[in-house]
């Protein structure tokens, strides 16, 4: 709006006409409506703006500065010695673990994310149907949302492995594959050779089913919400045309929930990268507790930039396939 005003410079007569006649007294200062609204907008976000500058932008900037310096904590200030990109070079060249863990995390996220998305769409579709005990099933499936971010589940899993219990209910599925059933199945079908890496992949997936289920709470919630927003008319039309459930799923459900697929994709990727339990994060935190703040900041920033780039690429690609309803 404001840019519009700039382009159209009013002529002198117009300005004269806009000025109030001399006889009329004005109360206070008159500000144009649009600008007044903009000022109110600033007022509404002012609190957040102050907070963000102090609690987010400033620390973010400072950590960026740390990453280029040797740091020495002293009273009141951080003593800095300029180091250029030394920390970054060390992280990628000298550190024995950093690059390796980074590749591992990227790989496992690339494998896990589509699985989580597919799984949560599947569960959301089931939970959206009407059946007895649905409330209970929903409550159970959202339980991870409540518990998973806390330390409880980690403690329990640790105890289960020390206690000799298989960690996670997924182990039962896993034994199926550890006896190499997949191999035998493939050989039975006459497929040789590729099975080595394939079995490995399948084994990681199945042994990870516990993490899969525990990490998809929010995603299920998002998809369920999207499913319930599908207009009834679309469903009715599909039924009239005699669409099977399969066709209905691909032609109606998927397009309608595709914006949510993008959203939960982003959420899943961030969740997996930011998880304090992943290896890179652990490495970064160890540096922090060893007082190597400069090195830690450099590692964190490099990691964050790589994650950001990966996320950007995903969003740009997926966004092409998303169906937005006009309206």
């Amino acid at each position: 709006m404001t840019s519009n005003d700039k382009i159209k410079t009013p002529t002198k007569e117009e300005v004269k006409a806009l000025k109030p006649p001399k006889g009329v007294k004005q109360k206070g200062i008159k500000i144009p409506y649009e600008r007044r609204k903009a000022l109110y907008g600033y007022a509404f976000i002012a609190l957040w703006l102050i907070g963000t500058i102090y609690f987010f932008i400033l620390p973010l900037f400072e950590s960026l500065v740390y990453s280029f310096n040797e740091t020495q904590p002293q009273r009141g200030v951080m003593h800095l010695d300029w180091n250029g990109i030394g920390h970054y070079r060390d992280a990628f060249r000298k550190d024995p673990d950093y690059s390796q863990f980074l590749v591992e995390i990227l790989g496992s996220t690339a494998l896990k994310t589509p699985l989580i998305i597919i799984f949560s769409i599947f569960v959301a579709v089931i939970l959206n149907q009407k059946f007895r005990g649905r409330t209970f099933a929903r409550a159970v499936f959202f339980l991870p949302v409540i518990i998973a971010t806390g330390p409880v589940i980690e403690v329990i899993n640790g105890n289960m492995s020390t206690g000799g219990y298989s960690a996670g209910g997924g182990e039962q599925f896993n034994t199926l594959f550890e006896t190499n059933l997949v191999d035998q199945l493939l050989e039975f079908l006459g497929i040789y050779g590729i099975s080595e890496s394939l079995t490995n992949t399948i084994t990681t997936v199945t042994s990870d089913i516990f993490n899969l289920v525990w990490n998809s709470g929010i995603q299920i919630l998002l998809f369920l919400a999207a499913l319930q927003n599908i207009p009834f008319s679309a469903k009715e039309a599909a039924q009239m045309e005699g669409a099977t459930a399969w066709e209905y799923f691909w032609k109606i459900t998927i397009p309608y929930i595709s914006p949510m697929i993008l959203a939960s994709l982003v959420y899943t990727v961030i969740d997996s990268f930011v998880d304090p339990e992943n290896k890179v994060m652990k490495l970064i935190l160890t540096q922090g507790s060893d007082w190597n703040y400069g090195y830690m900041a450099a590692m964190a920033w490099a990691y964050f930039l790589i994650v950001g780039a990966a996320l950007g690429i995903i969003v740009v690609i997926i966004n092409k396939f998303v169906y937005y309803e006009v309206g």
Binding site: T52, L58, L60, I270, F304, V307
Partner: peptide
Amino acid sequence: VIVVLMIIVPPQITTIPLYMQ
């Protein structure tokens, strides 16, 4: 964009400067 950054920047990056603050 800053709001979005707040979502995706892990808190581990800003903790130490915040601690100093």
